[in-house]
Amino acid sequence: MEKLFLSLLFAFSLGVGASANAAEKVTVFAAASMKDVVEEAAAQFKITHGADVTFSFAASSVLAKQIEAGAPASIFISADEDWMDYLQERQLISVPSRRVIAGNALVIVTQAGGERSEAIDILGAGRFAMGDPSNVPAGKYGKAALEKLGIWTEVEKNAVFAENVRVALQYVNRGEVNAAIVYASDLAAASGLAEAYRFPASSHSPILYPAALVGEGSAEARAFLDYLASDAGQAIIRAKGFVPAAEVGN
C-alpha cells in the first residue's frame, strides 16, 4: 500500500510540474510603438512554438520603472537605449541577451489630404502633439530634432505633451491638434493620417529598439527573443513600418 501511495504521489507531482510548465507564459513589456509588432509576433510564435505570449505596452520609462519595482516581465523592449541602460545599470536584465531588434524614423503626421511642408510651417501653425521629452523616447528624439533644426523655441508653445506616441496619434486623429510627431511605424498602423514631413536622420540620434531578457529568462522567453531577431520576426518588423536590425548597423 505504501509503495502504491508513493507511486501515485510521484505521478501526481510529475503531472503538476508538467501543467506548470505548459502554463508558463512569456510576458513582454514593450514600448507603445512596438504594439503591432509584438502582437503579430506573439500570434505567429504561438502557432510555431505553442507558447503563449502576453504583453504590456506603455512608454519605455514607465515600463522600466515597473520592472525596477518588481513587475513580472520576461522581456523588455525599449524605444531607446537609455532606458535599457537604466535597467542594465541596476542588474535587472541579462546583458548577453541584449540586442537591437529594429530601427525607426521620425515623422510629422497630419490628417490625410494635407500637403507636405516644412516642419516650421506645420508646427508653427497651431497645436501639435508629441511624446513628453522628459521621459518618452519619441519626445526626446522630437525635441532634439527640432533643436537641431533651430525651431524648438519657436514652436514649443504649441506642443501638447503625450504619455506615449499612440496617445499623440489619438490627439491628431480626433482633431484635437493639427499634427503629431511620431515614429514612421506608427503612421503605418494609422488610418486617415498622412506623412507631412520626415525629419532628416542627421537631426537626431539613431532610433533603435533594444530588447533583452529580464533576469535570466525562461527557455520560452529566450525562444521568443530569438524569434524577434530571426528572419520571420524581422519580416514582421519590416511589414509594420520599422527598419530591420540589419539595416540600422546593428
Rank of each mutant, 00 (worst) to 15 (best):
I93W: 04
A22P: 10
K240E: 01
E118I: 09
V165L: 09
A73S: 07
E115W: 04
F45D: 03
A162S: 15
L225N: 01
A184Y: 11
I236N: 07
A31Q: 05
Y141D: 02
V107G: 00
A229P: 05
V95P: 02
Q111G: 07
V100P: 09
G241P: 12
L6Q: 13
S203L: 08
V107R: 03
A188N: 10
I120W: 04
A212T: 12
A11I: 14
A41I: 08
I207M: 15
T153Q: 15
S218W: 01
P96Y: 06
G175R: 11
K65R: 12
S60L: 04
S94N: 14
W152C: 10
V243Q: 03
L6T: 14
P72A: 14
L6R: 14
R238E: 12
F57T: 00
I237D: 07
E147H: 04
E39Y: 04
L187V: 03
F12N: 02
D121I: 07
M84I: 05
L228R: 02
L208T: 03
P96F: 08
G241H: 12
G249E: 11
A125W: 05
D36M: 10
F55H: 05
V62G: 01
V28H: 03
R238T: 01
G126R: 06
L92I: 02
A145D: 13
A125H: 03
A138K: 00
S7F: 08
P244E: 10
S56C: 02
D82E: 10
A229T: 06
A168W: 07
M34F: 09
G17E: 00
F10C: 10
R166V: 03
G15W: 13
V37W: 01
E40L: 15
N158L: 11
E68D: 13
R198I: 11
I120F: 09
A59E: 08
L213S: 03
S205Y: 08
A43P: 01
A32N: 04
Y183F: 13
N21K: 04
A184C: 01
S117E: 13
S218Y: 02
A211Y: 05
I151N: 14
V165F: 01
A69T: 09
G241L: 12
I120E: 10
I75L: 10
V136G: 07
K148F: 12
K25A: 08
A246Q: 15
V107W: 00
R198A: 13
A71F: 07
